[in-house]
Design a protein around this nucleic acid. Structure first.
Lengths: 211, 211
DNA sequence: GCTCTTATTGATCGAGTGATCAACAACCTG
DNA sequence: CAGGTTGTTGATCACTCGATCAATAAGAGC
């Protein structure tokens, strides 16, 4: 009927490209990076498969770009959230709260896909490296801000950032894969951060809720 | 020549099944779990693709079994290594050394593949859960042995084991994905373990080398 | 040596994948 | 309203995957 007869309007390249990128992100978040195929994206946009191919040099780069866009958006989102925190201690606590929160599982799955698929998709592998660097830089900036403010003490923020991110990613991976399992608390991340930054014990306990 | 004319000998089902399982493990370790296909395994064994399918109810279960075999073998290997340690402190130190060692990257990649592929292969997902439980049980046993011996102090070994494994997996994933990157030391795992088990600082530093 | 069980094969199907290209048609420009 | 630019399509290719099945032949038992 109407849906069938609704021949697709012609759109500007920029607009169409944005549609495709959006559809790719949605598919990745709901069905995984491996599900981002020419046909799947085309079907979601409501367009012929050839058009998707027309807008992309190759599907491997679309997958890589999709991954990059999702992660970059997350970094921006978290950054915006942290910017509202008055102290570095609160910011770090909020960061850990957010990164360990249950609503992150969709993105965690994307990371797992990317780590696995990166072996056979070099464009994706490059993007994975880029986004890991971006996260580390972001965390380093947070830590150094705390040092400057006199809240944190550390002599190697970059190395600490790498380790904290690795720890968080590992805990998230476990939590995501063992979905539905006993929802164990994971207080060690905060304990570690407090210990390594010379904070008093409990300083990073979730102070999020409440004004 | 000889290789071509060498028509395949008939083998007992058990023998052939073992060959297939071995080939699948080798392929998984060198090219990833996703490369374990009917044709790849058949080619490695030197047999027709149909034979591999004949020995397996479905490829998804072969992939799951291959993953399980690789991880189970690793647990056995590590367990044998730790059994030689006279004290629980040394055993835990050796465990961390081994798990963080560079020669583990092949298995780490298998874990990443399994986590990603598990979403579309329920048999694999089940096996992933099983092997994660196996690792956790193993570590819990180690920790409790140390508690009984009076070397460790902890009130929740199971939760601690889960977190330590998550941390180790995350650090390994990062190290594997960022291959060739600055080989940073990752002393936090030992620091955490010492802190959580009421050990003196430095107790878990690699004492591996030397008699 | 013959027979019979069964391990093994070749051929093939159906469903995916990415990618290409001539043809079409929607829209802008004149 | 005509003409040209270009966004869009349908058809199709080459390749991969898992899976099936009749036909073959290797080897054990007699």
């Amino acid at each position: 009927m109407s849906t069938l007869s609704a021949r697709n309007r012609r759109k500007s390249p920029a607009e169409r490209a944005a549609e495709i990128a959006l559809a790719a992100r949605q598919i990745a978040l709901t069905e995984g990076l491996a599900a981002v195929t020419v046909r799947a994206v085309a079907a979601r946009v409501g367009v012929a498969p050839a058009l998707v191919a027309h807008y992309q040099p190759s599907m491997t780069v679309l997958v890589a770009a999709t991954f990059g866009a999702i992660v970059a958006a997350e970094i921006d989102e978290v950054a915006a959230e942290l910017a509202a925190c008055p102290t570095s201690v609160q910011a770090l606590g909020a960061l850990i709260d957010t990164l360990l929160g249950p609503e992150r599982s969709a993105v965690t799955v994307i990371w797992l896909d990317a780590w696995s698929l990166g072996r056979s998709n070099s464009a994706l592998a490059t993007e994975v490296g880029r986004q890991m660097d971006a996260w580390q830089s972001f965390l380093v900036a947070q830590l150094q801000a705390g040092v400057i403010r006199g809240e944190f003490v550390t002599d190697d923020a970059p190395a600490l950032a790498w380790q904290l991110l690795g720890i968080i990613d590992g805990l998230n991976a476990h939590a995501t894969v063992r979905y539905g399992d006993a929802r164990t608390e994971r207080p060690l991340v905060r304990t570690i951060a407090e210990h390594e930054l010379a904070l008093p014990a409990g300083a990073l306990r979730s102070t999020a809720a409440g004004s």
